[in-house]
Design a protein around this nucleic acid. Structure first.
Lengths: 261, 261
DNA sequence: GACACGTACTCGTATAGACGAGTGGGCAAG
DNA sequence: CTTGCCCACTCGTCTATACGAGTACGTGTC
């Protein structure tokens, strides 16, 4: 195996760049050049201390930088590893087209199985509650809403946490208030109930996760979340559902098609 | 002014939660509750050291956590501040509709001025180059492409860095190869040249920025980027342009409208 | 008043040391 | 062979100290 010097080079003591940044640069470059590949173990803190002749805190600063950048993950007792790129789930903009609703299975399940992954849904919760100000405004200020919460996993890994909100007067005592709303999901039920869906508005933000989100999505540090809020409108222009979704950003690509006219 | 204890509480020595996490929790809670507001200065490291009775490194670990979460920013020589939420630029999915192209000014300029901000474009670069593998595949494998790079700023703050790629056979010796392609931008020129635009495909990812992106977008730590790749197709189904855009995630909300059928 | 300077405060960087805790392999006892 | 333990190695947390560098402000000089 090649010497650390040939892989990482040495420090430039004349540089005004902070030592821990130089070390981070060296590691980043080695990763970019493929000297360390996805899942590979980086040199241990002790090895880096010996190689660069610096204190351990300096090395840890460097490694911490790489983790903030999402390039590396540390595992207690094992080492620091080049962060593997998980398989990406692609969300196409036609995923809510009526033709997809008419089959039966949930969209998430169908797509995941087509991609060769094992889908799971957990943390199911359906309850009535008072809406937050934001949700309330989007739904036309209902006094109470039905909230449907669930978490989606691929091959055991949580990738998405979503909550649907529906005005209570619309959802109470319907299949939508059941844990399993039946084939085609709540959009199919809404249409059966006479709310022909017209269009969806989606708003997309990206940000760093809250500590709670880190827990429920088991996020590595340096992984942002995509926050998507979708509002469903029926043919009369009424907002009939708002779906608030937080996704692990390293697991998703969102795809949209826009007409040019 | 209230005592630090009433704002931040005290440590729980019996807790198994790491001290620096407890300190971060206390600060986070105080921020959430509005005890510290946007732009407010947090207690200095020294004050926190005195208040919690811990060493400075522990306090710095806590503050560093908040910065990674995007909740705080530090300024050398001044202090650590609650990160202000910059005004958000909203990108609607109809922003490339033909009717918007027919006026004249660049979309960015028009929107920014409408929102009361001062728009700027800089770092203009137009050159011919060999496409990367990804760009090449999206454009139908041209040997060379015209690359148009520019950076967008709002009120002096960089918010977006974009590169447009066009097959060279299509763009060479046209207004598109000029630094300023004229009213309506390159999409207007493409249509004048007979490439009637049919639709756009957009792919959206979110991730942490590279060090180079941190520089060009002057990103605070804890701010992800939104990476958007748009491909423009003409009526014959040919990909005539790919636009690769990196946006400061805290400056943008992307909005899309999807039909339900 | 304008300017230079010193000083106190801020965060940034780095060192050295200590102990805790998770992991995995080897070795010895059963 | 299996089980259980120990040990070596890993990263996690925390202390204590030191100096550098950017900022703000007051003070004294011109």
């Amino acid at each position: 195996m090649p010497s650390l010097t040939s892989v990482l080079g040495v420090l430039d003591p004349t540089s005004d760049r902070a030592v821990f940044r130089q070390i981070a640069d060296a590691l980043r470059e080695a990763i970019d050049k493929g000297r360390f590949r996805e899942g590979d173990k980086l040199p241990s803190e002790t090895e880096l201390v010996d190689h660069f002749g610096v204190s351990r805190m300096t090395v840890r600063n460097a490694l911490s930088l790489l983790q903030q950048e999402g390039l590396a993950v540390s595992e207690h007792g094992k080492g620091v590893f080049v962060r593997p790129r998980p398989p990406v789930r692609r969300l196409a903009s036609d995923r809510f087209a009526r033709r997809h609703r008419e089959q039966g299975k949930a969209a998430f399940t169908v797509e995941a199985e087509a991609a060769g992954s094992r889908p799971e849904v957990d943390n199911l919760e359906v309850k009535e509650e008072r809406p937050s100000q934001d949700i309330s405004a989007r739904l036309g200020s209902p006094r109470k809403v039905l909230a449907r919460r669930r978490r989606y996993l691929l091959d055991g890994r949580p990738v998405e946490f979503a909550t649907s909100y529906l005005p209570l007067d619309l959802a109470r005592n319907t299949p939508i208030a059941q844990p399993n709303p039946g084939p085609g999901g709540i959009y199919a039920r809404l249409e059966e109930m006479g709310h022909r869906l017209d269009h969806f508005d989606e708003e997309i933000r990206a940000r760093m996760p809250s500590p709670a989100e880190v827990r429920t999505l088991q996020l590595a540090s340096g992984v942002p979340v995509i926050h998507l809020v979708r509002t469903a409108f029926d043919a009369e222009g009424r907002a009939v559902e708002v779906c608030d979704t937080v996704m692990a950003a390293d697991a998703y690509v969102l795809a949209y098609q826009l007409p040019a006219n």
